[in-house]
């Protein structure tokens, strides 16, 4: 079981080139839970994730892990506790699956220590978890998009961190693979208690897979809580500027957002959907 950490941000302001994108966010990441950062394009989801993962230095405010500022930790030490899978990592030409997964062991290895049994085990375990052991010796370019994404997640798993950040892990994948990836991440969370924080584009998948949702609008945190607490039609309208109905997903019981456009609204609709129409 992964250890519990108190991971907090206070009055966080961050962005690029002196231009703030995140404007004063306070949050605490729930340990051993799956958290999703959601919001419209350009609201600062990825910036927030990258700042929490120490890729971007905050302009002001603090990020602490167990009451220690993350900037004070050595990068390697931080990388043993917090892992990050960026949105579009680069596949070195000709690399095999196992070699790529093995690179996740970097923070655990000393320059001249070589590979220990623990390193091998971590790689084997990560590949097993992501069901890619059979591809171990294949080249990355022989795999499909979904398989590749599993390899990348396995690399992050080989890092064996308590906390894992993922920047849109399901983007560019077919719906089948999106579900597969999210199921695997849930397995990971259930089995090891790994704290997962990810940016997801799809509201409904967020609602289904998240234990906790951080809703962002224009660089500010407008809501945080369980999907049921956060995802209401008013709030979706507020965050995305989209009129919608929120119903209960018959499969999972989580909120399900049914977007409302200008077309394709049935005339003889129930009073329930009329309520949203007139709103």
């Amino acid at each position: 079981m992964k250890s519990t950490h108190l991971f907090q941000a206070q009055q966080l302001v961050a962005g690029y080139d002196h231009k703030a994108i995140i404007h004063g966010i306070d949050l605490a990441i729930p340990s051993h839970k799956i958290s999703v950062i959601m919001g419209s394009n350009g609201c600062g989801k990825s910036t927030l994730l990258k700042t929490l993962a120490r890729l971007i230095k905050p302009m002001s405010g603090t990020i602490t892990i167990d009451n220690e500022a993350i900037g004070d930790l050595s990068p390697r030490k931080f990388a043993k506790v917090v892992g990050l899978l960026p949105q579009s990592p680069i596949v070195p030409e000709g690399i095999t699956v196992a070699d790529l997964v093995g690179r996740g062991r970097f923070p655990h290895q000393s320059w001249f220590g070589g590979w220990t049994k623990r390193d091998y085990e971590a790689v084997a375990e990560a590949m097993d978890m992501m069901n890619i052991t059979e591809y171990a010796n294949q080249h990355m370019d022989e795999l499909s998009g979904g398989q590749r994404q599993r390899v990348w997640i396995a690399m992050a798993l080989a890092q064996q961190t308590d906390i894992l950040f993922l920047d849109e892990p399901t983007t560019f994948l077919d719906i089948t693979y999106q579900i597969e990836i999210l199921d695997l991440l849930t397995d990971l969370n259930r089995k090891y208690g790994t704290t997962i924080v990810m940016v997801l584009h799809d509201i409904n998948l967020s609602a289904r897979y998240a234990d906790h949702v951080f809703a962002l609008r224009e660089g500010k945190l407008v809501a945080g809580g369980t999907p049921t607490e956060v995802i209401t039609s008013e709030r979706i309208k507020d965050i995305f500027g989209l009129s919608c109905s929120v119903i209960t997903d018959p499969l999972s019981g989580s909120p399900l957002v049914v977007p409302q456009g200008r077309h394709h609204v049935q005339e003889a609709s129930s009073s329930d959907s009329n309520r949203f129409l007139t709103k």
Partner: peptide, 21 residues
Amino acid sequence: VTAPALNALALGDEAAAGLGV
């Protein structure tokens, strides 16, 4: 001495930073 870290850098700057480089 830098070769292992350069291996991480080959995965992109963000991935490398995530690995503690």
